[in-house]
Amino acid sequence: MAQLLILQIGIYYSRMKKYQLGEFEEVVMLTVGILYGEAYGVSIKKEIESRLKRGVSVGALQTALRRLEDKGYLKSHEGEATEERAGRPKKYFTITAYGKKAMEYTRSTREELWNAIPKVALKVVTGFRLPVADNLQLETGNNE
């Protein structure tokens, strides 16, 4: 019973957030896109580190990759085993069509939000004056 309830809540939750993509996940997706065809663990790590000037641990990256793969945004295939890798194969990642949609959705929602910001809020206010003097003159005129 309880399990069923949790499941229901889960479904509801995922529907609400149509394409859920965290900040780091987005960065990883974009990097995979940039490295088109050459994206595997070490190359992604290096690319992010050099472009964004921030350190990325293997653990964080691998968790994100796995999560994205589970969500169906990325797919992977095993590549060649090189000497420096002691014969371990590389795992290359590519973006799926669904992943592309998710990225586009994230981008469009960002833009929507950008667009929704009133122009004024972003303007630098230089000066403002009320036209008070004319009204005052009219009033004094009637009184006389």
Binding site: K45, E84, R88, P89, K90, K91
Partner: peptide, 11 residues
Amino acid sequence: RDSIEGDLMEL
């Protein structure tokens, strides 16, 4: 295991 181990080795 294999692919991550490979990454670790490479690094």
